[in-house]
Design a protein around this nucleic acid. Sequence first.
DNA 1: CACACTTACGATATTCGTAAGGATT
DNA 2: AATCCTTACGAATATCGTAAGTGTG
Lengths: 300, 300
Amino acid sequence: MQLNLSTRHLRAFLALAELRSFTRAAHRCHLSQPAFSALVRSLEDAVGARLFDRDTRNVELTAEGRTLEEPARRLLADFETLAADIGERVALRKGRVSVAALPSLAAGWLPGLFAEYRAAHPGVDLELFDTLSDQCLELVRAGRADFALAATGPDSAEWATEVLCRDRFHLVCRHDHPLARKATLRVKDLAAHPFVHFTRASSVRQHLEAALHPQQMATVLEVEHLTTVMGMVEEGVGITVVPALTLFEFDRGSLVHRPFRLPGLERTIYLVRRADRGLSLAARSLYDLMIQRKPALRRA
Amino acid sequence: MQLNLSTRHLRAFLALAELRSFTRAAHRCHLSQPAFSALVRSLEDAVGARLFDRDTRNVELTAEGRTLEEPARRLLADFETLAADIGERVALRKGRVSVAALPSLAAGWLPGLFAEYRAAHPGVDLELFDTLSDQCLELVRAGRADFALAATGPDSAEWATEVLCRDRFHLVCRHDHPLARKATLRVKDLAAHPFVHFTRASSVRQHLEAALHPQQMATVLEVEHLTTVMGMVEEGVGITVVPALTLFEFDRGSLVHRPFRLPGLERTIYLVRRADRGLSLAARSLYDLMIQRKPALRRA
DNA sequence: CACACTTACGATATTCGTAAGGATT
DNA sequence: AATCCTTACGAATATCGTAAGTGTG
């Protein structure tokens, strides 16, 4: 037989110990006085000892009651701290979300979204891993990230995926480049010009090659970072093709970007999470905000 | 609105977190599975968050549940420590009793009684103040002693008193003293012989003077400690009169002690406690043992 | 279809508030 | 007489277990 005590028992005990009056303590506990009396008695029965000496005039803790007073106070405080903690998590005033995202998304679209989320829930810690697709999934699998923004939709029971948006590829070249003003843009037009590629590990490169296959590019360079691609193109080293979500990097007067008509020339951005565990409230709220604020697809 | 949680909620939560099965956790909590299910739901409703992700195959903590797990474990452990503590006090395996007693009782009668009590309840700490009557009462008034053994029965609403025993006065003299063999012993016989008194502060002295009044003694010495009185009498410095409960000190071949017939020549030993607060369980049990083992009145 | 959680539901236990009782000042 | 805790008691609520329902492998 294990005893069952509730926070109401603790509150009643402490109220009575402090106020030394059943009537007033009952009122503090929002109970009628007889109900309060019964509650105290049930507590005394549960612990097997009389905790208060009472006659019609005075109420006072017994020796056993006094030994209980301080521990009970701490216990209730701990309880309430815990309740407050989870309450703050429910109210999204506290918590932590960790997102793994491709660099192309991390730099362009996410900052604005994170800013909005942070303004709404300043108490929630945000963590962002900007890394390549495989590593993103690995972080989610290991539980270090709540979910990932990735360009691959891994089709396994391990994952729960949802489409965030489709991201069309654009040609980027200098303003004075021949392709900048060509009437209709075709894939085979690319072959004639020096091309700045992403490294083969990047999802942009992989998507691009798959979409353009078997068309070959005139690769002059393979680089890792988006900024480097931009610099190269701006200096006329070559042209490139990038997804719309990275175009923020190329928004400068010396450059031009133009979408392709070809429907296959796009990638899909997925929200990916583990199928076997739900999202925390904080993670869910950020996830939902992402769905709600889907990246606008640029036409220009 | 303040939430009400019970130890059963905690136990259910922890059992389910550990066993990851409603069926098995319900069994551990001695509940039917649907009742257990309802209990978990009521916990989730109370904290306002889903704590377990469950489908028909798997049960697992949510992120919020995980944040709750360790604190809940500590909280329940604290609860049970506290319950165990008070249980041990109720069972008298733990506790503390403090007694204030006159030196005459502290040295003679109490040691055997304390030994008996200690053997029965080795976990209970015993404290003994052996001091004069006024100081005994002061210790009880201040709450530093649970009750006192005193020769004065203070007749005030402040005190609750109970008679422990009556203690008759005996003449003590050397074996070779004239009074050692006198056929009938009268008070006035005392006046002719040098008398060793206790100090005026002692209750023995006060009782004796009150009882013998207006008879005057031939005082040769006033000393504080019982042992000193014994030494003086043994060396033939004088005779003395002491209560029966101190006779243990005079049980040696060279000395004789003889009771007086006079009924007034006795003192009453009281158990004295504060009227406004009860005794702790440990104190009550020692108190009751004292009543039960009242000092045997010596006839010899 | 077997297993595991949820829902339905009637029975039982607990807890509530009002009203009466008893003790003390 | 007034105050304060306890007891009595019918009503509302909570909790229980059995049995049926539901979804998943």
